[in-house]
Amino acid sequence: MTIEDTITEKLQAGLNPQHLEVENESHMHNVPPGSESHFKIVAVSEAFNGKMLIARHRLINKLLEDELQVIHALALHTMTPEEWAEKGAAPASPPCMGGGK
């Protein structure tokens, strides 16, 4: 199973999201082809209702504790169903600047 699949599975189970995007953005960075180093997640879930951003991110960081040991970057965009209806999209991730670890 790829890391991308594992991340998707864990977030599906942990957040019961209304909408979930797990995107491998490693190709945007200075890593070999096929790498699983940089990910972007867009998650829309009722689990975020009434939670500050930092609490939402902590929730995901906890669910992906094992994966965070091996991946290099994780961009997180967390919305409640209400916020998602208003916004409908997440911002783009920054390009790599070659900083290594």
Binding site: P94, C96, M97, G100
Partner: peptide, 14 residues
């Protein structure tokens, strides 16, 4: 990662 003048990571830079 890096400094505000010379950041070495896109996330740090932003």
């Amino acid at each position: 990662k890096g400094t505000p003048q010379f950041p070495s990571c896109g996330f740090s830079s932003r």
